[in-house]
């Protein structure tokens, strides 16, 4: 029997340790799809190690916020895994300290901190990225809210564990239009939040086309490493939300035995890699949208989420 606090910690640690690896897998699959050999899967870890070894440079005229933001963001990303079903299908003690809305707000806080740090620098690219992200965020955050409303209407609670349990309990939940719409809307938001095509090129050098990546341009050394690490963690957290709450909440540990927990970790990694693969395929299938077309993309996500709530609220669908 693994004690509950340990499982709780394991949830956090799994996300912390696995996140860069998932990014590595995606990069690898993407390269393969393009006919390249691609970087090693472990490459993100090497990058992080290299960055941690470098010195920190701070632009002129920045305050303490500039350096505090990466740490704060990291703290946020470490908090969220305690709230969502990462490894277990049952409630963990700290899972009650925040609902799905709380988790969303903590993620939002992290994004806010990064944006504040970016504007602090006064550097054009970083500010550009930050302001763009916030502009489109005006639509994506309502989308998240509507997705959460859908969860709340379906389960009567606002806890991610409950929805996962509902999905597991009946196959009928899967064919429910509200559920599918919310899942699709969430997927679009994930693509947006993790900076994937068709929103932006993840690994490019064209600063004008970037939203997420460009915000961290002024950071360096360990702080840049924290930001990079944090963004891979955000990606994994969103994937987990998508997989373990909406699409495939199977393979989670049903009890506290060591074997079940170990299997759950492996299953989680496997499922995340599959989703990463799907994202890589999407990346390769579509072209990047022009900046002004991104509103159409987020508007589509908004449409899906609103319809999800409507079908539920007005028709019981």
């Amino acid at each position: 029997m693994v004690p509950e606090p340990l499982i709780q910690a394991l949830q956090m640690l799994t996300v912390l340790c696995a996140a860069p690896g998932i990014s590595g897998v995606i990069a690898r699959v993407e390269a393969r799809l393009q006919g390249r050999r691609g970087p090693r899967i472990l490459q993100p870890y090497y990058d992080l190690r290299k960055l941690f070894a470098k010195e920190t440079l701070v632009p002129h005229g920045t305050s303490w916020v500039f350096l505090a933001a990466p740490v704060g963001a990291m703290a946020c990303y470490l908090t969220v895994p305690m709230l969502i079903p990462v490894l277990t299908s049952f409630d963990l003690p700290l899972g009650d300290m925040g609902d799905i809305l709380g988790g969303g707000m903590i993620l939002g806080l992290a994004s806010f901190l990064v944006a504040v740090a970016a504007t602090e620098t006064g550097a054009p690219y970083a500010q550009l990225g930050a302001s763009r992200v916030k502009t489109f965020g005006a639509i994506t955050e309502p989308v998240m809210l509507f997705v959460f409303f859908t969860v709340a209407l379906v389960t009567g609670t606002d806890k991610p564990y409950a929805l996962a349990a509902t999905v597991r309990a009946s196959s009928e939940q899967i064919v429910r239009p509200a559920h599918l719409l919310a899942a699709a809307g969430l997927l679009l938001v994930i693509l947006y939040e993790t900076g994937r095509i068709p929103v932006e090129t993840h690994s490019g050098t064209n600063e004008f086309g970037m939203l997420e990546e460009v915000r961290v341009f002024e950071h360096s050394g360990p702080f840049l490493a924290l930001l990079r690490w944090g963004s891979t963690m955000k990606q994994l957290i969103l994937y987990i939300l998508f997989i373990n709450v909406f699409v495939a909440p199977w393979g989670l540990a049903g009890d506290r035995s060591l074997l079940a927990v170990a299997l759950a970790i492996l299953a989680l990694l496997g499922k995340s890699c599959v989703l990463g693969g799907v994202v890589a395929v999407i990346d390769n299938t579509f072209a990047k949208l022009r900046l002004f077309k991104i509103t159409e993309f987020v508007a589509a996500a908004f449409l899906l989420a609103v319809l999800a709530v409507c079908t539920l609220y007005f028709g019981g669908g």
Binding site: T155, V175, R176, P177, L307, L312, G315, G316
Partner: peptide
């Protein structure tokens, strides 16, 4: 908040999904 909405049957679910797809198109 409305109370928990009981999920409709598989038939209704499939029909609704098709109807939603019509709207999305």
């Amino acid at each position: 908040m409305a109370p928990t909405v009981t999920p409709p049957g598989t038939y209704a679910g499939v029909a609704n999904v098709l109807a939603v797809l019509v709207l999305l198109s």
